[in-house]
């Protein structure tokens, strides 16, 4: 029986403190700082590894991962429309959130695999970048079609110059340009403290998830079922794609986790402006209060076992 990674306990602590309404609140500047450090650390780590082994992104991999991002929202949309009887806007918004990815969940799977000594592709942060935007575009098109009165220009700037993309790609570039030796002086902060930073991030995520619980009660059974059942199903899709692309065991687990994760930063911001008639609380609650906890507590170990089983 493997013991729970201590960083996960920080999430549990935040969740419990939030539920008990304890006097605990991290200032927003701390959350911003911690998530900036995480994004840069993930990017840098990938960049340094790329400089070491140079395994670039193959065209077939690029196409496969982009296709995953564009297509994942479609089954989610159908389920939300039929089983959840949501309006078109709400279903598309939910589908966009679940097609897109959560960098927080990615950070946890990276920590999980590293702790167990499982190798994964150094270019994995690039997958995060590739998977973040397409699903959001699909979600918007599901509501408005291709033209509509969507403020595309404003939206593209928001999507492609979003914080996570800029910091991940920036970190990746710096790590790649500087290499293992060049980054030696900054490694104590970004690599040495990674798990500590992740712990603080998860503490805040626990508090945020707890704050969603009252909304969860209002939206009821469908959101809970959706948030619990869609991620494992999507993980299987992600894992099968990983197999088809001949990724390593760790890489398959990462891709499965990414497919299973739901966005709670990029998608809410973009969908709020592009599909204002959708209720923003619905996907945010499902993503933060159901799917994120499920993935980090139960999902990630399962997805790793799935990857091991598939590669046999």
């Amino acid at each position: 029986m493997p013991t729970l990674d201590p960083v996960i306990w920080f999430f549990v602590l935040g969740l419990a403190a939030g539920v008990a309404r304890a006097d605990l609140r991290l200032p927003s500047a701390i959350y911003e700082f911690v998530s900036t450090l995480l994004l840069l650390a993930i990017g840098l780590k990938g960049g340094v590894e790329l400089a070491r082994d140079g395994g670039g992104l193959r065209p077939v991999e690029l196409a496969g991962i982009l296709a995953l991002g564009f297509l994942l929202p479609l089954p989610a949309f159908a389920v939300a429309r039929v089983a959840g009887r949501l309006t078109r806007a709400d279903a598309a918004s939910l589908a966009a959130h679940y097609g897109s990815v959560s960098v927080g969940t990615f950070a946890v799977v990276v920590g999980f695999l590293t702790a167990r000594g499982v190798q994964y592709e150094a270019r994995a942060p690039v997958w995060v970048v590739l998977l973040e935007v397409p699903a959001i575009l699909t979600g918007i098109v599901l509501v408005h079609g291709l033209s509509g009165d969507v403020p595309w220009r404003h939206l593209f700037r928001e999507l492609f110059l979003g914080r996570s993309i800029v910091l991940l790609l920036g970190g990746l570039a710096i790590g790649w340009l500087s290499g293992p030796d060049g980054t030696a002086s900054i490694q104590p902060l970004f690599f040495g403290l990674f798990k500590g930073i992740l712990a603080l991030f998860l503490l805040e995520m626990g508090l945020i998830a707890a704050a969603q619980l009252p909304t969860l009660r209002r939206h009821g059974a469908f959101i809970i079922a959706f948030g619990l059942l869609v991620p494992p199903a999507f993980a299987v899709v992600g894992a099968l794609l990983g197999c088809a692309l001949e990724l390593s065991v760790g890489g398959i687990a990462v891709l499965a986790t990414l497919a299973a994760s739901a966005s709670y930063i990029a998608a809410p911001a973009a969908i709020r402006t592009a599909v204002p008639e959708a209720n923003p609380a619905l996907p945010l609650t499902a993503s933060l209060a159901v799917t994120f906890p499920f993935n980090i507590l139960v999902g990630i170990p399962l997805y790793e076992r799935l990857a091991v089983a598939l590669t046999g």
Binding site: R25, L26, P27, S28, Y31, I208, A211, T215, Y264, I265, P268, A269, P280, A281, L284
Partner: peptide, 20 residues
């Protein structure tokens, strides 16, 4: 300025960008 409070669309926090 950043703000928080409560209104017709529920409680709005200032510490979480998506809901502030």
């Amino acid at each position: 300025t950043d703000a928080r409070g409560k209104g017709g669309r529920g409680r709005r926090r200032s510490d979480w960008a998506q809901e502030s």
